[in-house]
Design a protein around this nucleic acid. Sequence first.
DNA 1: TAGTGGTCTAGACCACCGC
DNA 2: CGGTGGTCTAGACCACTAG
Lengths: 247, 247
Amino acid sequence: MGTTLYRRVAEDIKAAIVSGSYQAGARLPSESELAARYGASRGTIRQAFAALVADGVISSRQGARRVVLGGPRLQTFNELVSFSRWARAIGEEPAGRVERMELRAANEDECAHLEVPLGSRVYHLTRVRYLSGRPVMIERTAYREPVGAMVAGMALDVVSITERLEDLGVIFADAEHQIDAVAATSEDARLLEVRSRVPLLRERRRTADPDGVMLEWSDDRYLGDAVAFTVRNSASVKALSRLPSQR
Amino acid sequence: MGTTLYRRVAEDIKAAIVSGSYQAGARLPSESELAARYGASRGTIRQAFAALVADGVISSRQGARRVVLGGPRLQTFNELVSFSRWARAIGEEPAGRVERMELRAANEDECAHLEVPLGSRVYHLTRVRYLSGRPVMIERTAYREPVGAMVAGMALDVVSITERLEDLGVIFADAEHQIDAVAATSEDARLLEVRSRVPLLRERRRTADPDGVMLEWSDDRYLGDAVAFTVRNSASVKALSRLPSQR
DNA sequence: TAGTGGTCTAGACCACCGC
DNA sequence: CGGTGGTCTAGACCACTAG
């Protein structure tokens, strides 16, 4: 088999949901029925269902058939970490203009978030990102070494730094996003070509590799009327938290 | 056993992480070692690890020991759906003041989100929520029948509607949150006691029962400097999406 | 190359749901 | 009550990591 069996089962079910064969609220086939249909054991079918539950596509309760949840419009992890990949996925043309680029000592905040010693040097980048020619976001990103050195070696006009890093063997595996609302500073307003104090959606993100080593720490500010985030969660998937702001 | 074995294993590991026995980046014991320690089969231990991966506490890759990720600051699903429960969990005193309360025909937006026919009646509630006496959020919630009728029957000064509904047998199982930034309208500003056009963090939330039936649709607006949301995700947990705003 | 996690099987018993 | 999902076992083989 080219891929694994349980992934194939999960993909089949997801495809059937997207195609409309199972509407929201519909009850899915039982484990034993699918096991017979695929010639697989019950455990393999359960693994497929578990993947769909984790993605928020279906819900599951003891004794009752599994049920299709509302509109699944999920993105892959890669689309979430890379602005460029996301833009292309929604049919827009991504672009970036470098505003500032520097190798300097990390400030206290950056050291804490990147989990590096005080005084470490980090590579810092400020870019304005565009969707089909319109400025929608400012990213201010600090890269930890040795990733910073790779970024420094890239041409200034590279559109997707994330994709280039992946080509170089850097693996982004886990991210923590903190989302709140702020008023545009005068610099924000100038870069986004809007008035000062306009509401911006701020996403502060830490991305780690599979060993939990922090790779980047970014402060991204989106125009409030350009972008929204959606989160799915349930009793079994605890991905979201609400925090009192401590600033 | 009072609870299930795999949950106990998962709780033990999580407790060891929280207590500092395993720092961020530390490598956890192998499956076979834990299986021997608990007298359990390998499958049970894997189930425990899978729960921790779903919660974003650890990461897992073939061939290598599992690794502890950065600080786990997760909330239960219930704390996320109920403002009151969340407030108490962070040591603040929750309160609510009802601004408006009405039973009326749902508008187009509400029908779409609650998945009820056009013209259905919904119960609509506007409340200002306080943390230790300070106004921090406005909630504008539409409840679908028959939940609406239960809400209508409650005393006006009930602090936690969600908890009262749970007492009445309503199960909140799955939620979809859409998060963006907006400027305070004049009504928003009056209710939150701030100036007009101040940046607010808006959370629009649909909550469903275990069968996927929508129960409530809410537009919650937080003071930008009072609250933030955090999301954890990874290649295996796809809970977050970024959307172009369509308004 | 030895150890580890990823996948899969073929059973078993129980708790819960819906008819 | 029968069907269903939740839990658990005891094996097996493979792909990958790390020393």
